[in-house]
Structure formats: C-alpha cells, structure tokens
Amino acid sequence: MSELVEKFQSLSIQQPDTLSREQQAQAAQWDSVLKTGQFQERLDDLNVLLRDNSFILSTLKPTITDVNVFEVSLPLVKEQVFSSKDVKGTYTKYRHILRWIDYLQKLLKVSEEGQLKISYDIDLPREVI
C-alpha cells in the first residue's frame, strides 16, 4: 500500500456503501489504465471525465480510485506544466485535472516540494464544450 493510500485511509473519509454498475466499471477502467501503463494516453479522457464530475467515480467525496490515479497523474502533469513553453495552453487543456489535483494534493497534505504549484492568476479562455 502506498503512502498516499495510507494517508487517504487515515482521513476517514466516508466511502459509499455500494457502487453502482457504472461506478464499478469506471473504477475497473482506471485500474486497467494504470496497470497497463496507458495513463499518459488517457489524460484527455480523464480531463473530460473530471469536467463532468467532481471525482472519478461521480461521487461527492474522493475514493481510493481518485488516490490511485492522482498518484500517477501528479508527477506526469507536473512534468507537462514545467516542460511546456505554453503554460496557459497546458492549463487550458487540463484545467479540470488541475482543479482535481489541487484539491487532492491539499487533502492528502503532499509535501511542498512534491506539490504542483498552481497559478490561480492565469486568465483561461472560456471552455467550449
């Protein structure tokens, strides 16, 4: 069990008693993406999912699936932001993932150096859906 998962479990965030068929399938899908090493290719899909939902399984509070995906996405998105010449473009493209990362890194008390420093001053263009 990873340190982040342990930290999440120690927070005693109430988890749903049961998950719907759709939620279980969504959890299986992201488990599959992580285990097959296809996460980078699925960043856009994650962004769209988080556009329509606060958390991956459409729950009101984060679940273990959020934490598992967050653990992989944090370094990857950090790298994308650092290496990008077009930071505003990266923020625009992954705005929903950034919102979700911002929430989870604070919730899980990720160390200062481990966090993605998010600039709240960037004026993003209106999203066209």
């Binding site: 759709e22 279980q24 399938a25 969504q26 299986a28 899908q29 599959s32 899909d45």
Partner: peptide
C-alpha cells in the same frame, strides 16, 4: 458515462 477500456466494457 463512457467506457473506452475493453476490459471494463466486458466487466460492465
């Protein structure tokens, strides 16, 4: 709600 992963499609 969209699934793109064939494993999860089968499970669903």
């Amino acid at each position: 709600a969209r699934l793109f992963d064939a494993n999860s499609i089968l499970r669903y």
